[in-house]
Amino acid sequence: MNVPISIKVNGVERQAEVEPRTLLASLLRETLCLTGTHIGCDTAQCGCCTVLVDGDAVKSCTMLAVQADGCSVTTIEGLAQGEELHPVQKSFHDCHALQCGYCTPGFIMSSVELLEKYRDLDEGRVRELLEGNLCRCTGYNNIVQAVLSLAAERGRT
């Protein structure tokens, strides 16, 4: 039996009737055509599907769409303001923190929360806090750098 849900996605109220087994990731990708959220595993390890639900980074492959009913969801598509990239997106580009780009949306969303919630970041702490995302291309160092450079910028202002 389908369940009606109402979710604010990237600032826009969306209604849908979903099968209870629909994952939040599938709702975003298939129903709402927001394909920037990727699926890389089936055990909630890789983090490619990371989105923000009410400001918390979550793995949207391990959350039912019905659980997000009434919540506010931000996906990678919701970060840039028109032509202007979100600072985290820009920092990933500037630091060469992506290669194939498949894990990138998940890493960026994860990093947005990280920078939002944590202060006093150093390299070791950032590496630890990024443990929920896998990248096979970059070797992580430039990703860590992309986060640290924003943290440093924040420290200066």
Partner: peptide
Amino acid sequence: IPRRQDARLVRGEGRFLDDIV
């Protein structure tokens, strides 16, 4: 030279196989 393909990838606008319907 900064990578030219990043522009779409950081926006989640890459088009990977599973994105094709």
